[in-house]
Design a binder for these strands. Sequence first.
DNA 1: GCAAAAGTGTTTTGCCTACACCCATGC
DNA 2: GCATGGGTGTAGGCAAAACACTTTTGC
Lengths: 249, 249
Amino acid sequence: MQPLSERDYIQQLSIDCVIFGYQDKQLKVLSPKLDFKGDFWALPGGFIHQQESIHEAAFRILEDRTGIRDIYLEQFRVFGDAERSNVQFMGRLVELNREKFDSHLFNRKEFEWLTRRFVSIGYYALVDINKVVPRKNDIDESIDWYPIKALPTMIMDHNEIVEKALETLRANLDQKLIAFNLLPETFTMKDLQELYEAIFDKPFARNNFQKKMLDLNVLERLEKKYTGAANKAPYLYRFQQQAPLLEAV
Amino acid sequence: MQPLSERDYIQQLSIDCVIFGYQDKQLKVLSPKLDFKGDFWALPGGFIHQQESIHEAAFRILEDRTGIRDIYLEQFRVFGDAERSNVQFMGRLVELNREKFDSHLFNRKEFEWLTRRFVSIGYYALVDINKVVPRKNDIDESIDWYPIKALPTMIMDHNEIVEKALETLRANLDQKLIAFNLLPETFTMKDLQELYEAIFDKPFARNNFQKKMLDLNVLERLEKKYTGAANKAPYLYRFQQQAPLLEAV
DNA sequence: GCAAAAGTGTTTTGCCTACACCCATGC
DNA sequence: GCATGGGTGTAGGCAAAACACTTTTGC
Protein backbone atom coordinates (compact mmCIF):
# COMPACT_ATOMS: atom_id res chain seq x y z
CA MET A 1 0.00 0.00 0.00
CA GLN A 2 1.12 3.51 -0.74
CA PRO A 3 2.60 5.14 2.36
CA LEU A 4 0.62 7.94 3.95
CA SER A 5 3.31 10.47 3.34
CA GLU A 6 3.16 10.02 -0.41
CA ARG A 7 -0.56 10.25 -0.89
CA ASP A 8 -2.14 13.50 -1.95
CA TYR A 9 -3.32 14.57 1.47
CA ILE A 10 -3.40 18.07 2.90
CA GLN A 11 -0.50 18.19 5.33
CA GLN A 12 -1.03 18.42 9.09
CA LEU A 13 -4.79 18.55 8.79
CA SER A 14 -6.97 15.67 9.93
CA ILE A 15 -10.58 14.78 10.62
CA ASP A 16 -11.82 13.00 13.73
CA CYS A 17 -15.33 11.60 13.80
CA VAL A 18 -17.48 11.00 16.84
CA ILE A 19 -20.00 8.47 15.58
CA PHE A 20 -22.98 8.27 17.88
CA GLY A 21 -25.26 5.25 18.04
CA TYR A 22 -28.03 4.20 20.41
CA GLN A 23 -28.54 0.75 21.85
CA ASP A 24 -29.73 -0.82 25.11
CA LYS A 25 -30.90 2.57 26.38
CA GLN A 26 -27.37 3.90 26.10
CA LEU A 27 -25.70 6.43 23.88
CA LYS A 28 -22.66 4.79 22.31
CA VAL A 29 -19.61 5.86 20.38
CA LEU A 30 -17.78 3.82 17.78
CA SER A 31 -14.10 3.35 18.49
CA PRO A 32 -11.46 1.15 16.87
CA LYS A 33 -8.67 -0.36 18.91
CA LEU A 34 -5.30 -0.34 17.23
CA ASP A 35 -3.64 -3.62 16.31
CA PHE A 36 -0.62 -2.99 18.50
CA LYS A 37 0.39 -3.95 21.98
CA GLY A 38 -0.57 -1.38 24.54
CA ASP A 39 -4.36 -0.87 24.37
CA PHE A 40 -4.65 2.13 22.11
CA TRP A 41 -8.20 3.28 21.34
CA ALA A 42 -8.96 6.15 18.99
CA LEU A 43 -11.71 7.95 17.16
CA PRO A 44 -12.26 6.99 13.55
CA GLY A 45 -10.34 9.57 11.61
CA GLY A 46 -8.42 10.30 8.50
CA PHE A 47 -6.99 12.88 6.19
CA ILE A 48 -8.24 15.07 3.39
CA HIS A 49 -7.43 14.46 -0.25
CA GLN A 50 -6.45 17.45 -2.32
CA GLN A 51 -9.40 17.00 -4.60
CA GLU A 52 -12.16 16.45 -2.06
CA SER A 53 -13.97 18.82 0.28
CA ILE A 54 -13.63 18.35 4.02
CA HIS A 55 -17.26 17.25 4.09
CA GLU A 56 -16.65 14.60 1.45
CA ALA A 57 -13.59 13.45 3.36
CA ALA A 58 -15.66 13.04 6.51
CA PHE A 59 -18.25 11.02 4.58
CA ARG A 60 -15.53 8.82 3.12
CA ILE A 61 -14.02 8.16 6.55
CA LEU A 62 -17.45 7.35 7.90
CA GLU A 63 -18.32 5.00 5.09
CA ASP A 64 -15.02 3.17 5.51
CA ARG A 65 -15.85 2.35 9.10
CA THR A 66 -19.63 1.95 9.04
CA GLY A 67 -20.39 0.77 5.53
CA ILE A 68 -23.16 3.32 5.15
CA ARG A 69 -23.17 6.68 3.50
CA ASP A 70 -26.61 8.04 4.27
CA ILE A 71 -25.67 9.58 7.58
CA TYR A 72 -26.30 12.74 9.53
CA LEU A 73 -22.96 14.49 9.73
CA GLU A 74 -21.87 17.87 10.99
CA GLN A 75 -18.62 19.63 11.82
CA PHE A 76 -18.61 21.06 15.30
CA ARG A 77 -15.15 22.33 16.26
CA VAL A 78 -11.50 22.55 15.32
CA PHE A 79 -8.84 21.26 17.67
CA GLY A 80 -5.62 23.13 17.10
CA ASP A 81 -3.36 23.34 20.13
CA ALA A 82 0.27 23.92 19.28
CA GLU A 83 1.30 20.77 21.11
CA ARG A 84 -1.36 18.67 19.44
CA SER A 85 0.54 15.80 17.84
CA ASN A 86 0.79 12.04 17.78
CA VAL A 87 4.36 12.16 18.98
CA GLN A 88 3.71 11.09 22.54
CA PHE A 89 1.34 8.27 21.73
CA MET A 90 3.41 7.13 18.76
CA GLY A 91 6.49 7.08 20.96
CA ARG A 92 4.83 4.76 23.43
CA LEU A 93 3.41 2.67 20.62
CA VAL A 94 6.80 2.17 18.98
CA GLU A 95 8.40 1.39 22.30
CA LEU A 96 5.87 -1.35 23.00
CA ASN A 97 5.96 -2.76 19.49
CA ARG A 98 9.63 -2.73 18.50
CA GLU A 99 9.36 -5.90 16.47
CA LYS A 100 6.83 -4.42 14.05
CA PHE A 101 8.78 -1.28 13.40
CA ASP A 102 11.88 -3.03 12.16
CA SER A 103 9.73 -4.42 9.38
CA HIS A 104 8.22 -2.75 6.34
CA LEU A 105 5.12 -1.18 7.89
CA PHE A 106 6.38 2.08 9.29
CA ASN A 107 9.55 3.59 8.01
CA ARG A 108 11.22 6.68 9.36
CA LYS A 109 9.57 9.00 6.84
CA GLU A 110 6.14 7.66 7.68
CA PHE A 111 6.79 8.12 11.37
CA GLU A 112 7.78 11.73 10.85
CA TRP A 113 4.74 12.43 8.69
CA LEU A 114 2.43 11.06 11.36
CA THR A 115 4.03 12.67 14.37
CA ARG A 116 4.01 16.23 13.17
CA ARG A 117 1.65 18.66 14.79
CA PHE A 118 -1.89 18.15 13.45
CA VAL A 119 -4.91 20.41 13.37
CA SER A 120 -8.06 18.31 13.46
CA ILE A 121 -11.59 19.11 12.39
CA GLY A 122 -14.14 17.45 14.66
CA TYR A 123 -17.25 15.95 13.08
CA TYR A 124 -20.09 14.17 14.77
CA ALA A 125 -22.38 11.66 13.10
CA LEU A 126 -25.69 10.12 14.10
CA VAL A 127 -26.46 6.62 12.86
CA ASP A 128 -29.03 3.89 13.25
CA ILE A 129 -26.81 1.44 15.05
CA ASN A 130 -28.61 -1.52 13.46
CA LYS A 131 -27.67 -0.42 9.98
CA VAL A 132 -23.98 -0.29 10.79
CA VAL A 133 -21.59 -3.20 10.48
CA PRO A 134 -18.38 -1.75 11.93
CA ARG A 135 -15.38 -2.36 9.71
CA LYS A 136 -11.80 -2.63 10.79
CA ASN A 137 -9.16 -0.99 8.66
CA ASP A 138 -5.61 -2.29 8.17
CA ILE A 139 -4.31 -1.15 11.52
CA ASP A 140 -7.30 -2.02 13.70
CA GLU A 141 -7.39 -4.95 16.04
CA SER A 142 -11.11 -4.43 16.65
CA ILE A 143 -13.80 -1.83 16.32
CA ASP A 144 -16.69 -1.63 18.77
CA TRP A 145 -19.43 0.49 20.23
CA TYR A 146 -18.70 1.82 23.72
CA PRO A 147 -21.27 3.41 26.04
CA ILE A 148 -20.45 7.06 26.39
CA LYS A 149 -20.37 6.62 30.13
CA ALA A 150 -17.80 3.85 29.88
CA LEU A 151 -15.48 4.99 27.14
CA PRO A 152 -11.94 3.69 27.27
CA THR A 153 -9.16 6.23 27.63
CA MET A 154 -8.29 7.16 24.07
CA ILE A 155 -5.18 8.55 22.45
CA MET A 156 -4.33 12.22 22.30
CA ASP A 157 -7.28 14.51 23.05
CA HIS A 158 -9.92 12.14 21.67
CA ASN A 159 -11.83 11.88 24.94
CA GLU A 160 -12.11 15.65 25.02
CA ILE A 161 -13.33 15.64 21.42
CA VAL A 162 -16.13 13.27 22.41
CA GLU A 163 -17.15 15.60 25.24
CA LYS A 164 -17.36 18.59 22.96
CA ALA A 165 -19.31 16.55 20.45
CA LEU A 166 -21.82 15.57 23.10
CA GLU A 167 -22.21 19.20 24.16
CA THR A 168 -22.95 20.17 20.58
CA LEU A 169 -25.36 17.28 20.13
CA ARG A 170 -27.30 18.37 23.20
CA ALA A 171 -27.44 21.95 22.03
CA ASN A 172 -28.60 21.01 18.54
CA LEU A 173 -30.95 18.16 19.30
CA ASP A 174 -34.22 20.04 19.59
CA GLN A 175 -33.42 22.85 17.23
CA LYS A 176 -32.44 20.68 14.30
CA LEU A 177 -34.74 17.69 14.90
CA ILE A 178 -31.94 15.21 14.48
CA ALA A 179 -32.65 12.70 17.24
CA PHE A 180 -34.51 10.47 14.80
CA ASN A 181 -31.28 9.67 13.01
CA LEU A 182 -30.30 7.56 16.00
CA LEU A 183 -33.45 5.41 15.90
CA PRO A 184 -34.70 2.77 13.49
CA GLU A 185 -37.37 3.60 10.92
CA THR A 186 -40.19 3.05 13.40
CA PHE A 187 -40.13 3.46 17.15
CA THR A 188 -42.41 3.96 20.11
CA MET A 189 -42.71 7.13 22.12
CA LYS A 190 -40.96 5.37 24.96
CA ASP A 191 -38.02 4.56 22.72
CA LEU A 192 -37.73 8.21 21.80
CA GLN A 193 -37.96 9.32 25.39
CA GLU A 194 -35.34 6.87 26.53
CA LEU A 195 -33.09 8.12 23.77
CA TYR A 196 -33.48 11.67 25.04
CA GLU A 197 -32.81 10.51 28.55
CA ALA A 198 -29.65 8.77 27.42
CA ILE A 199 -28.41 11.85 25.58
CA PHE A 200 -29.16 14.36 28.31
CA ASP A 201 -28.52 11.95 31.15
CA LYS A 202 -31.64 13.04 32.98
CA PRO A 203 -35.27 11.90 33.18
CA PHE A 204 -38.16 13.53 31.33
CA ALA A 205 -41.81 13.59 32.39
CA ARG A 206 -43.59 11.01 30.28
CA ASN A 207 -46.78 12.88 29.45
CA ASN A 208 -45.13 16.22 28.81
CA PHE A 209 -42.50 14.60 26.66
CA GLN A 210 -45.16 12.97 24.51
CA LYS A 211 -47.01 16.23 24.10
CA LYS A 212 -43.88 18.12 23.16
CA MET A 213 -42.90 15.56 20.54
CA LEU A 214 -46.36 15.36 19.01
CA ASP A 215 -46.58 19.14 18.89
CA LEU A 216 -43.52 19.18 16.67
CA ASN A 217 -45.75 17.87 13.91
CA VAL A 218 -43.06 15.69 12.44
CA LEU A 219 -44.22 12.32 13.72
CA GLU A 220 -46.49 10.05 11.78
CA ARG A 221 -48.49 7.66 13.92
CA LEU A 222 -48.59 4.10 12.62
CA GLU A 223 -50.21 0.90 13.93
CA LYS A 224 -49.94 -0.31 17.49
CA LYS A 225 -47.13 -2.53 18.61
CA TYR A 226 -48.33 -5.61 20.51
CA THR A 227 -45.54 -7.03 22.59
CA GLY A 228 -47.49 -9.60 24.56
CA ALA A 229 -47.05 -7.59 27.72
CA ALA A 230 -49.98 -7.18 30.05
CA ASN A 231 -50.55 -3.54 29.28
CA LYS A 232 -51.81 -1.13 26.70
CA ALA A 233 -49.99 -1.44 23.39
CA PRO A 234 -47.98 1.63 22.35
CA TYR A 235 -48.23 3.20 18.93
CA LEU A 236 -45.35 3.06 16.53
CA TYR A 237 -44.19 6.32 14.99
CA ARG A 238 -42.21 7.31 11.96
CA PHE A 239 -40.32 10.53 11.40
CA GLN A 240 -41.71 12.56 8.53
CA GLN A 241 -38.80 13.67 6.40
CA GLN A 242 -40.75 16.41 4.69
CA ALA A 243 -41.59 18.14 7.94
CA PRO A 244 -44.61 20.41 7.51
CA LEU A 245 -43.25 23.19 9.71
CA LEU A 246 -46.14 25.52 8.96
CA GLU A 247 -49.14 23.35 9.71
CA ALA A 248 -51.26 26.21 10.99
CA VAL A 249 -52.09 27.79 7.62
CA MET B 1 10.84 40.26 3.97
CA GLN B 2 10.86 36.52 4.10
CA PRO B 3 8.56 35.05 1.48
CA LEU B 4 5.40 33.33 2.70
CA SER B 5 6.42 30.01 1.29
CA GLU B 6 9.53 29.84 3.41
CA ARG B 7 8.03 30.73 6.75
CA ASP B 8 7.08 28.01 9.18
CA TYR B 9 3.37 27.98 8.41
CA ILE B 10 1.06 25.01 8.31
CA GLN B 11 0.44 24.38 4.62
CA GLN B 12 -2.95 25.01 3.01
CA LEU B 13 -4.57 26.05 6.27
CA SER B 14 -5.63 29.62 6.90
CA ILE B 15 -7.66 31.71 9.31
CA ASP B 16 -10.21 34.32 8.29
CA CYS B 17 -11.52 36.76 10.88
CA VAL B 18 -14.84 38.52 10.83
CA ILE B 19 -14.22 41.45 13.16
CA PHE B 20 -17.48 43.00 14.29
CA GLY B 21 -17.73 46.56 15.56
CA TYR B 22 -20.66 48.84 16.34
CA GLN B 23 -20.93 52.48 15.38
CA ASP B 24 -23.65 54.92 14.29
CA LYS B 25 -26.33 52.37 15.11
CA GLN B 26 -24.85 49.96 12.59
CA LEU B 27 -23.05 46.66 12.86
CA LYS B 28 -19.79 46.96 10.98
CA VAL B 29 -17.07 44.63 9.74
CA LEU B 30 -13.41 45.49 9.35
CA SER B 31 -12.06 44.89 5.87
CA PRO B 32 -8.75 45.79 4.26
CA LYS B 33 -8.55 46.70 0.60
CA LEU B 34 -5.57 45.30 -1.23
CA ASP B 35 -2.95 47.66 -2.61
CA PHE B 36 -3.48 46.51 -6.19
CA LYS B 37 -5.51 47.71 -9.11
CA GLY B 38 -8.90 46.09 -9.30
CA ASP B 39 -10.75 46.81 -6.01
CA PHE B 40 -10.03 43.67 -4.01
CA TRP B 41 -11.50 43.60 -0.52
CA ALA B 42 -10.88 40.74 1.88
CA LEU B 43 -11.32 39.60 5.42
CA PRO B 44 -8.35 40.02 7.73
CA GLY B 45 -6.67 36.66 7.67
CA GLY B 46 -3.45 34.82 7.94
CA PHE B 47 -1.71 31.55 8.51
CA ILE B 48 -0.73 29.41 11.45
CA HIS B 49 2.82 29.08 12.69
CA GLN B 50 4.03 25.63 13.56
CA GLN B 51 4.59 26.58 17.16
CA GLU B 52 1.34 28.41 17.91
CA SER B 53 -2.19 27.20 18.49
CA ILE B 54 -4.90 28.19 16.05
CA HIS B 55 -6.38 30.36 18.79
CA GLU B 56 -3.09 32.17 19.29
CA ALA B 57 -2.79 32.61 15.55
CA ALA B 58 -6.22 34.21 15.43
CA PHE B 59 -5.26 36.55 18.27
CA ARG B 60 -2.05 37.49 16.47
CA ILE B 61 -3.89 38.24 13.24
CA LEU B 62 -6.39 40.32 15.17
CA GLU B 63 -3.76 42.27 17.03
CA ASP B 64 -1.92 42.99 13.80
CA ARG B 65 -4.98 44.67 12.36
CA THR B 66 -6.63 46.22 15.41
CA GLY B 67 -3.75 46.93 17.78
CA ILE B 68 -5.61 45.34 20.66
CA ARG B 69 -5.36 41.92 22.17
CA ASP B 70 -8.11 41.86 24.75
CA ILE B 71 -10.84 40.74 22.41
CA TYR B 72 -13.75 38.35 22.38
CA LEU B 73 -12.85 35.72 19.84
CA GLU B 74 -14.45 32.46 18.82
CA GLN B 75 -14.11 29.96 16.01
CA PHE B 76 -17.39 29.24 14.30
CA ARG B 77 -16.89 27.15 11.17
CA VAL B 78 -14.42 25.59 8.77
CA PHE B 79 -14.63 26.37 5.08
CA GLY B 80 -13.21 23.49 3.12
CA ASP B 81 -14.64 23.10 -0.36
CA ALA B 82 -12.36 21.25 -2.73
CA GLU B 83 -12.34 24.19 -5.14
CA ARG B 84 -11.60 26.70 -2.43
CA SER B 85 -8.46 28.49 -3.57
CA ASN B 86 -7.10 31.91 -4.38
CA VAL B 87 -6.37 30.90 -7.92
CA GLN B 88 -9.23 32.75 -9.56
CA PHE B 89 -8.80 35.96 -7.65
CA MET B 90 -5.00 35.84 -7.90
CA GLY B 91 -5.29 35.33 -11.64
CA ARG B 92 -7.36 38.46 -12.03
CA LEU B 93 -5.08 40.34 -9.68
CA VAL B 94 -1.96 39.44 -11.62
CA GLU B 95 -3.64 40.26 -14.91
CA LEU B 96 -4.54 43.74 -13.69
CA ASN B 97 -1.17 44.37 -12.06
CA ARG B 98 1.40 43.00 -14.49
CA GLU B 99 3.96 45.68 -13.66
CA LYS B 100 4.20 44.67 -10.01
CA PHE B 101 4.68 41.01 -10.73
CA ASP B 102 7.74 41.42 -12.87
CA SER B 103 9.41 42.92 -9.82
CA HIS B 104 10.57 41.30 -6.63
CA LEU B 105 7.29 41.06 -4.73
CA PHE B 106 5.74 37.88 -5.98
CA ASN B 107 7.83 35.24 -7.59
CA ARG B 108 6.55 32.07 -9.15
CA LYS B 109 7.06 29.98 -6.01
CA GLU B 110 5.15 32.48 -3.92
CA PHE B 111 2.30 32.49 -6.41
CA GLU B 112 2.05 28.73 -6.29
CA TRP B 113 2.10 28.65 -2.51
CA LEU B 114 -0.75 31.14 -2.34
CA THR B 115 -2.94 29.67 -5.03
CA ARG B 116 -3.11 26.16 -3.73
CA ARG B 117 -6.36 24.91 -2.28
CA PHE B 118 -6.83 26.31 1.25
CA VAL B 119 -8.97 25.14 4.13
CA SER B 120 -9.88 28.12 6.27
CA ILE B 121 -10.99 28.32 9.88
CA GLY B 122 -13.52 31.09 10.41
CA TYR B 123 -13.27 33.16 13.57
CA TYR B 124 -15.45 36.02 14.63
CA ALA B 125 -14.39 38.77 17.00
CA LEU B 126 -16.32 41.43 18.91
CA VAL B 127 -14.55 44.70 19.65
CA ASP B 128 -15.23 48.11 21.08
CA ILE B 129 -14.82 50.04 17.87
CA ASN B 130 -13.44 53.06 19.72
CA LYS B 131 -10.52 51.10 21.05
CA VAL B 132 -9.43 49.98 17.61
CA VAL B 133 -7.08 51.88 15.35
CA PRO B 134 -7.16 49.80 12.17
CA ARG B 135 -3.70 49.02 10.85
CA LYS B 136 -2.76 48.31 7.28
CA ASN B 137 -0.29 45.58 6.60
CA ASP B 138 2.25 45.56 3.77
CA ILE B 139 -0.19 44.71 1.03
CA ASP B 140 -3.13 46.86 2.11
CA GLU B 141 -4.12 50.05 0.38
CA SER B 142 -6.59 50.84 3.16
CA ILE B 143 -8.47 49.19 5.98
CA ASP B 144 -11.93 50.40 7.00
CA TRP B 145 -15.14 49.55 8.79
CA TYR B 146 -18.03 48.72 6.49
CA PRO B 147 -21.67 48.49 7.57
CA ILE B 148 -22.74 44.90 7.31
CA LYS B 149 -25.59 45.98 5.09
CA ALA B 150 -23.23 47.69 2.67
CA LEU B 151 -20.26 45.37 2.49
CA PRO B 152 -18.24 45.48 -0.69
CA THR B 153 -18.00 42.30 -2.72
CA MET B 154 -15.01 40.50 -1.31
CA ILE B 155 -12.63 37.94 -2.72
CA MET B 156 -13.29 34.20 -2.69
CA ASP B 157 -16.07 33.16 -0.32
CA HIS B 158 -15.46 35.94 2.19
CA ASN B 159 -18.95 37.40 1.88
CA GLU B 160 -20.38 33.98 2.70
CA ILE B 161 -18.05 33.73 5.69
CA VAL B 162 -19.46 37.01 7.02
CA GLU B 163 -23.00 35.70 6.66
CA LYS B 164 -22.21 32.54 8.60
CA ALA B 165 -20.46 34.60 11.25
CA LEU B 166 -23.53 36.79 11.65
CA GLU B 167 -25.75 33.74 11.98
CA THR B 168 -23.52 32.41 14.73
CA LEU B 169 -23.38 35.77 16.47
CA ARG B 170 -27.17 35.95 16.54
CA ALA B 171 -27.46 32.43 17.88
CA ASN B 172 -24.88 33.01 20.61
CA LEU B 173 -25.73 36.55 21.64
CA ASP B 174 -28.17 35.85 24.43
CA GLN B 175 -26.78 32.55 25.53
CA LYS B 176 -23.23 33.71 26.01
CA LEU B 177 -23.87 37.31 27.05
CA ILE B 178 -21.35 38.69 24.62
CA ALA B 179 -23.10 41.76 23.25
CA PHE B 180 -21.31 43.96 25.76
CA ASN B 181 -18.02 43.36 24.00
CA LEU B 182 -19.28 45.60 21.19
CA LEU B 183 -20.03 48.54 23.48
CA PRO B 184 -17.81 50.92 25.42
CA GLU B 185 -17.29 50.45 29.15
CA THR B 186 -20.50 52.30 30.02
CA PHE B 187 -23.65 52.64 27.96
CA THR B 188 -27.32 53.45 28.26
CA MET B 189 -30.12 50.96 27.87
CA LYS B 190 -31.00 52.63 24.61
CA ASP B 191 -27.47 52.04 23.31
CA LEU B 192 -27.79 48.38 24.16
CA GLN B 193 -31.18 48.11 22.53
CA GLU B 194 -30.02 49.79 19.34
CA LEU B 195 -27.11 47.39 19.24
CA TYR B 196 -29.49 44.46 19.44
CA GLU B 197 -31.63 45.99 16.74
CA ALA B 198 -28.60 46.40 14.51
CA ILE B 199 -27.52 42.81 15.03
CA PHE B 200 -30.93 41.23 14.52
CA ASP B 201 -32.13 43.80 12.03
CA LYS B 202 -35.49 44.13 13.74
CA PRO B 203 -37.02 46.37 16.41
CA PHE B 204 -37.46 45.42 20.06
CA ALA B 205 -40.10 46.73 22.46
CA ARG B 206 -38.41 49.28 24.70
CA ASN B 207 -39.89 48.33 28.07
CA ASN B 208 -39.68 44.60 27.58
CA PHE B 209 -36.13 44.85 26.35
CA GLN B 210 -35.14 46.75 29.48
CA LYS B 211 -36.77 44.19 31.71
CA LYS B 212 -35.12 41.29 29.94
CA MET B 213 -31.69 42.85 30.20
CA LEU B 214 -32.08 43.79 33.87
CA ASP B 215 -33.33 40.29 34.67
CA LEU B 216 -30.06 38.90 33.41
CA ASN B 217 -28.47 40.27 36.58
CA VAL B 218 -25.26 41.19 34.86
CA LEU B 219 -25.76 44.95 34.57
CA GLU B 220 -24.53 47.37 37.16
CA ARG B 221 -26.46 50.63 37.24
CA LEU B 222 -24.28 53.72 37.51
CA GLU B 223 -25.06 57.44 37.64
CA LYS B 224 -27.43 59.19 35.27
CA LYS B 225 -26.25 60.60 32.01
CA TYR B 226 -27.35 64.20 31.49
CA THR B 227 -27.26 65.11 27.84
CA GLY B 228 -28.96 68.49 27.97
CA ALA B 229 -32.00 67.09 26.18
CA ALA B 230 -35.44 68.05 27.40
CA ASN B 231 -36.28 64.68 28.88
CA LYS B 232 -35.53 62.31 31.70
CA ALA B 233 -31.87 61.43 31.93
CA PRO B 234 -31.09 57.77 31.28
CA TYR B 235 -28.93 55.67 33.58
CA LEU B 236 -25.55 54.47 32.53
CA TYR B 237 -24.79 50.77 32.92
CA ARG B 238 -21.71 48.67 33.12
CA PHE B 239 -21.39 44.97 32.41
CA GLN B 240 -20.42 42.97 35.46
CA GLN B 241 -17.65 40.62 34.47
CA GLN B 242 -18.15 38.38 37.47
CA ALA B 243 -21.77 37.63 36.61
CA PRO B 244 -23.63 36.34 39.67
CA LEU B 245 -25.67 33.78 37.79
CA LEU B 246 -27.19 32.32 40.92
CA GLU B 247 -28.60 35.37 42.62
CA ALA B 248 -31.57 33.60 44.12
CA VAL B 249 -29.75 31.71 46.88
C1' DG C 1 -60.53 -7.83 38.68
C1' DC C 2 -55.93 -6.33 38.64
C1' DA C 3 -51.32 -4.63 37.74
C1' DA C 4 -48.64 -2.37 34.40
C1' DA C 5 -47.88 0.82 31.00
C1' DA C 6 -49.89 3.96 27.50
C1' DG C 7 -52.69 7.85 26.32
C1' DT C 8 -54.88 12.16 27.39
C1' DG C 9 -56.79 16.08 30.09
C1' DT C 10 -56.32 19.93 33.61
C1' DT C 11 -53.97 23.16 36.52
C1' DT C 12 -50.08 25.85 37.64
C1' DT C 13 -46.09 28.33 36.65
C1' DG C 14 -43.06 31.23 34.30
C1' DC C 15 -41.83 33.87 30.49
C1' DC C 16 -42.61 36.96 26.61
C1' DT C 17 -45.62 40.38 24.60
C1' DA C 18 -48.67 44.27 24.55
C1' DC C 19 -50.68 47.98 26.66
C1' DA C 20 -50.71 51.59 30.00
C1' DC C 21 -49.05 54.79 33.10
C1' DC C 22 -45.85 57.69 35.71
C1' DC C 23 -41.44 60.41 36.09
C1' DA C 24 -37.64 63.56 35.08
C1' DT C 25 -35.78 67.15 32.12
C1' DG C 26 -35.17 71.63 29.61
C1' DC C 27 -37.57 75.04 27.29
C1' DG D 1 -47.14 73.72 31.45
C1' DC D 2 -45.63 70.73 28.08
C1' DA D 3 -43.33 67.92 24.79
C1' DT D 4 -39.94 64.33 24.91
C1' DG D 5 -37.95 60.33 26.17
C1' DG D 6 -36.90 57.11 30.24
C1' DG D 7 -38.50 53.91 33.88
C1' DT D 8 -41.85 50.80 35.67
C1' DG D 9 -46.27 48.18 36.49
C1' DT D 10 -50.01 45.19 34.89
C1' DA D 11 -52.91 42.07 31.96
C1' DG D 12 -53.04 38.47 28.28
C1' DG D 13 -51.16 34.58 25.70
C1' DC D 14 -48.35 30.69 25.11
C1' DA D 15 -45.64 26.87 26.41
C1' DA D 16 -43.36 24.05 29.79
C1' DA D 17 -43.93 21.68 34.13
C1' DA D 18 -46.67 19.38 37.60
C1' DC D 19 -50.58 16.78 38.81
C1' DA D 20 -54.37 13.75 37.84
C1' DC D 21 -57.25 10.65 35.48
C1' DT D 22 -58.71 7.18 31.89
C1' DT D 23 -57.74 3.34 28.68
C1' DT D 24 -55.81 -0.87 27.06
C1' DT D 25 -53.62 -5.31 27.60
C1' DG D 26 -52.71 -10.18 29.36
C1' DC D 27 -53.18 -12.90 33.15
